[in-house]
Nucleic acid binder design. Structure first.
Lengths: 141, 141
DNA sequence: CCGATGCTTTACGTTAACGTCAAGCACCTC
DNA sequence: GAGGTGCTTGACGTTAACGTAAAGCATCGG
C-alpha cells in the first residue's frame, strides 16, 4: 500500500516521471546538470530510494522558486556533509533570502496592482464621458 | 523649462535613450518589432513628439509587466481607432486581466513564503537539537 | 586629409529549463 | 525475422528582450 516506504525498491525513469508528473527528458536533464546520478543496468537508468528522494527535493526546490544551480549546491552540500551542519545553515540562509526576495516581489506586485487599478478607473471614466456603457467587473452574465 | 511640451521638438535616438534610461539598442529593437516607426533623415532615425509618447507607453507597459507583443497590439489599436473606443475597452480588459494574474501570483507567493517559513523553523529546531547556536534573523551586527 | 564621434545594419550570443526530433540498441512477440 | 516498445545519446529548437561585436557611411574639428 505504501510501496514508497520500501528502501529497496528500484524505479525506472518513466515510473518516476509518471509518479511526479514530469517528463523523462526533464529527469535526464537534471542528471546532465549533476543533480542526479542513478545506477545503470547496461545503459538503462535505475533509480533507488535515495535517488527518488533527491528528485523530490529537486522538484520541491523548483516549486519554491529556486534555480537548478542553487538546488545542486544544496544537494552537493547534503552529500559532502554527513552531520548536515553546514547544510542546515545553508538551507536556512537560502530560505531566508528567498523569503526576502518574495516579499520584495509582493511589494512590487501590490504597487503594480494599484497602478493598474488607477488605469482601470481612468478607462471607466473616459468611457462614461464618451457615452459608452461601462462594463462591470462581471464574472457573471 | 518644459521642453517636452513643445509638440514640434525632434529627438535623436540617444536623446530618448538617455532621457528614459534605456539603451539605443532597445529602442531599435522596439522598432524592429513594429512598436515604433520614426521618420528618417537620410539613414538616421528622427523621433517626434508622438513617437516619444509611444515610447513612454511602451516603457510603462513593460514596467507593468506586459509583453512587447501585447503592447504592440494596444498601440496598433490606438492608431486604427480614432475615437479610441475599442482601444479603451481593450485597455480596460487588459488591465483587468493583468490584475487577476498579479493577484494570483501574489497568492502563490504567500503560500510559498509560508512553506519557506516552515522550513526555516525546521532548520532552527534541528540546529538547536544539534547544539548549534541558532543565528537570529539579524539585520544588525 | 586624419581621426574621432555618431549613427547605421547585420548577425550571432545570452539565460533557463527543458521540447523535439533523429538514429540506434536491446528485448519481446508472433 | 519483422515489427513494436522502451530506453539510450546527441544535437538542435524554443521564448523574451535585448547585449555585443563587426563593418561601414557621414560629418565635424583641426
Amino acid at each position: 500500500m505504501t510501496p514508497h516506504r520500501d528502501p529497496d525498491r528500484l524505479f525506472s525513469i518513466t515510473e518516476l516521471a509518471e509518479e511526479f508528473g514530469v517528463t523523462a527528458r526533464a529527469i535526464r536533464f537534471y542528471e546532465s546538470k549533476g543533480l542526479l546520478e542513478p545506477q545503470r543496468a547496461g545503459a538503462m537508468r535505475v533509480y533507488n530510494y535515495r535517488d527518488r528522494a533527491r528528485l523530490l527535493i529537486i522538484l520541491r526546490g523548483k516549486r519554491l522558486g529556486f534555480s537548478l544551480a542553487l538546488i545542486k549546491q544544496y544537494l552537493d552540500l547534503y552529500d559532502a556533509d554527513p552531520g548536515h551542519r553546514g547544510q542546515l545553515a545553508a538551507l536556512l540562509a537560502g530560505a531566508r533570502q528567498r523569503i526576502e526576495e518574495l516579499e520584495s516581489q509582493r511589494r512590487d506586485i501590490d504597487l503594480t496592482i494599484e497602478e493598474l487599478r488607477e488605469i482601470e478607473e481612468q478607462c471607466l471614466e473616459a468611457m462614461r464621458r464618451a457615452g459608452i456603457d461601462p462594463p462591470g467587473t462581471d464574472p457573471e452574465t
